[in-house]
C-alpha cells in the first residue's frame, strides 16, 4: 500500500465500444511459466493463504527462530569449537557422552564439531550463491526489463534456455572442469540461480513499467535512472527478496547434494552432505551421525522457506481482501 497508487478512475480509459474479437494482445494471457513458477506458485504461507490475519506473522517468527539457530551455531563455530576439526583422539564411533557430546564419526572426529562446521559451510554456500546469483541476476534482469521488441524476445529466449540447463548438471560440469571445492559449488549454484533471478527481475520490471504512475512520472520529466531508483526498485524488491530467500534454501540443498556426491567442499571442511555420505556405512551402529546432519539441513531449509513466506505476508500488499 505504500506504493503510489494511481487513482481508480473508470473514466480515464474509454476505448471504442465493443469490437468483435479484440486483438489478442489486449486480453491478459495466462501467466507464463516463469511467473507461475516464480511468483504465483511460490510456496504459500504455512497456514494457508485464506487466513486473513493481523500484521504479525507467526510464520516469520518460527522461520527466524529455526534459521537463526543455525546462524548462531555457525557464528559460534568461527570462534570456538569443542574439538579441533581433525582431532581423532576420541576413538572411532564413540557413543554420545562427555567429552564428545554427540559421539565421534568413523574416523574418530567429534560429531558436534563437524556439525558446527557444517552449519558454517551450508550458510556460506547458501548466502554465497544467493549473493552471486542475486547480483548477476538483477544486473542482467533490470536492463532486460527495459528492452523492447526483438531484443526483448531474444533476451527472454536466452534466459529460458539458461534456465532449462539444470542447476545440478551445471554444477557437476563446473566441478568436473575445475576442482571439487566450495567455491566451485557456489559458483555453479550462483550462476544457475542468476538466470532464474534475471528472468524474475525482467518480468517484475516490465510489470512495474506498465503501470500508469511510471507514465505519469515520465511525462512530468523524471529521468529513467530516477524512475528506476524511485519506482522500479522499491516496487520489485519485496518479491525479489522473497524469491532470493527461497533460492537460499534450494542452494543449501543443492550444495548438500553436491557434497554427498563428493563434488562439494573437500575433506577438511565438514559439509553436512559429505557427513551423511560418510555416515551411510555406519548408519545402524552410529545412527546419530546419519540423522543429525539431515535434521539440521531440514531445519535450515524449512526455516529459510518460512522466512520467505513470512516476508511475503509482510511485504506483499496485494493480498486478496475479503469482499
Amino acid at each position: 500500500m505504500n506504493a503510489p497508487e494511481p487513482p481508480v478512475q473508470p473514466l480515464t480509459s474509454t476505448p471504442p465500444p465493443e469490437p468483435l474479437a479484440e486483438p489478442l494482445t489486449s486480453t491478459p494471457p495466462p501467466e507464463p511459466l516463469a511467473e507461475r513458477l516464480t511468483s504465483t506458485l511460490l510456496p504459500e504461507p504455512f497456514g494457508g493463504r485464506r487466513r486473513t490475519g493481523g500484521r504479525r506473522s507467526p510464520t516469520l517468527v518460527i522461520g527466524c527462530l529455526l534459521a537463526g539457530a543455525i546462524v548462531a551455531v555457525a557464528v559460534v563455530s568461527l570462534f570456538w569449537l569443542p574439538f579441533p576439526p581433525d582431532d581423532t583422539s576420541g576413538g572411532r564411533l564413540a557413543p554420545p557422552g562427555p567429552p564428545h557430546l554427540l559421539g565421534t564419526d568413523k574416523l574418530g572426529r567429534d560429531l558436534l564439531t563437524q556439525l558446527m562446521i557444517g552449519a558454517r559451510i551450508a550458510l556460506t554456500a547458501g548466502i554465497g550463491s544467493v549473493a552471486l546469483g542475486g547480483v548477476l541476476g538483477v544486473a542482467a534482469g533490470l536492463p532486460a526489463g527495459f528492452a523492447t521488441r526483438w531484443l526483448d524476445d531474444t533476451i527472454a529466449a536466452l534466459l529460458d534456455i539458461l534456465i532449462a540447463f539444470p542447476t545440478l548438471l551445471l554444477a557437476m560440469l563446473l566441478v568436473a572442469a575445475r576442482e571439487a571445492s566450495l567455491g566451485s559449488a557456489v559458483l555453479a549454484i550462483g550462476l544457475a540461480m542468476s538466470a532464474i533471478v534475471a528472468r524474475l527481475t525482467r518480468v517484475l520490471v516490465k510489470r512495474v513499467l506498465a503501470q500508469d504512475f511510471i507514465t505519469a512520472s515520465r511525462t512530468s520529466g523524471t529521468s529513467w535512472p530516477r524512475v528506476v531508483a524511485e519506482h522500479v526498485l522499491p516496487n520489485i524488491w519485496p518479491t525479489l527478496l522473497v524469491n532470493l530467500a527461497l533460492q537460499l534454501g534450494l542452494a543449501v540443498l543443492a550444495e548438500a547434494s553436491l557434497s554427498y556426491l563428493g563434488l562439494g567442499a573437500p575433506p577438511p571442511n565438514a559439509s553436512w552432505g559429505r557427513m551423511l555420505q560418510e555416515a551411510q556405512s555406519t548408519v545402524l551402529t552410529a545412527p546419530l551421525g546419519a540423522v543429525a546432519p539431515g535434521l539440521l539441513l531440514i531445519m535450515l531449509v524449512v526455516g529459510v522457506n518460512l522466512v520467505a513466506d513470512g516476508l511475503r505476508d509482510v511485504a506483499d500488499p496485494t493480498r486478496r481482501r475479503s469482499r
Binding site: P43, L253, G273, V301, L306
Partner: peptide
Amino acid sequence: QFGIAVPVF
C-alpha cells in the same frame, strides 16, 4: 512444506 526441505539422498 517439510517435504520440500528433505534432501532426497
